[in-house]
Amino acid sequence: MKRIAFGDKVLIFSIYAFLILLSFSAFYPFWNALVVSFNLGLDTSKGGVTFWPRVFTLENYKIVFQDDRLVKGFIVSVSRTIVGTISAILMTAILAYGMTKKDLMGRKFYMVVFIFTMYFGGGLIPTFLVVRSLGLMDSFWVFIIPSLISVWNMIIFRTFFKTLPNGLEESAQIDGCSNWGIFFKLVLPLSGPVIATLGLFTAVAHWNDWFLPSIYITNPDLVPIQTMLRQILNANIVTELTNSIDTASIARLDGMRTITTKSLTMATMMVATLPIIMVYPFVQKYFVKGVLVGSLKE
């Protein structure tokens, strides 16, 4: 067995120690938020709650799920993420497939226009005016239509489609398959890794977006939970939220409410964060292959 030099051992130890500290610094804030969400609010305000709940309770989550607005917000977020991800990936993939065709008239011009939009945007006010003129204000479709096409994702799709053997499409055309048939029956089934990777990135973007609803949505039934969480963090609706719940359903300690702003915020944060985190393990195996697609040479 080859002996490892002392200097190499020190280097390896230093690398592992650095990675452990880096992982801990990234994971601990999330873990502490989870711990606080399961801890009694008044006890948390005393400080010292770090790795484990000191006074375990589910009262914070009861408050969250008893409020109809937060439940509706969660449903809106889930619906937006599912519909928005599927539609965006499908539309972007169709556009990318069309851009791989060398006989497409004006293909280079279209590509220049697409890339131009990656660097220059119309701005918030013109975008707002366009959305309003399209009648998308206070509509669920304001979450979907403006984000149907991602130029960056289109370029990655296009690069991946170019790596597919030309003989596959030629064989399908000989068998009488149309372009739509080739796309749905041949190209998409072979694009699992890139679809999974870009689909996850798109889903995370939809799930985490709180800014767009704060501008285009005034109907409380269409506000996603992320925007509500932002409002809670700004302390805009904490008092209204706690007062809207029957006081008999809130546990009391020495005649005082056990719920605090911090504990309620952490519980809402967990409800808004855990669902999207649970998706990662199911698509992890596609990441290594999927994230390298855009680095392939054309």
Rank of each mutant, 00 (worst) to 15 (best):
S249I: 13
E59V: 00
M118Q: 04
G255C: 13
N234D: 11
F13T: 14
A205F: 07
F27M: 13
F211H: 13
F13A: 14
L22R: 02
M270W: 00
T239W: 03
V10I: 15
V113I: 15
G73I: 08
W207H: 02
R230C: 15
A272L: 09
G199P: 04
L292R: 11
S79F: 06
I215R: 01
Q231E: 15
N234P: 05
T261S: 10
A272G: 07
I155A: 02
L253F: 13
L19H: 07
L274R: 12
L229I: 11
S147A: 15
L222F: 08
N60K: 01
S214W: 06
T261A: 11
K9R: 15
V55Q: 03
R257S: 13
Q226T: 05
I94R: 04
S25M: 13
R257T: 11
M266R: 10
T218Y: 09
F24H: 03
G73F: 08
S249H: 10
I245H: 08
T258S: 15
I225P: 00
D254F: 11
T202V: 06
A93T: 06
M228L: 11
R54T: 07
V204A: 08
E240K: 13
D8S: 15
M270H: 00
P220T: 06
R132S: 14
F201L: 12
T239V: 09
V238A: 02
S171P: 02
R69C: 13
G121D: 14
V151K: 00
A17K: 07
V76S: 03
M118R: 03
Q231T: 14
P220L: 06
T117S: 07
G192Q: 05
P146F: 08
V112Q: 12
V288M: 10
R54C: 03
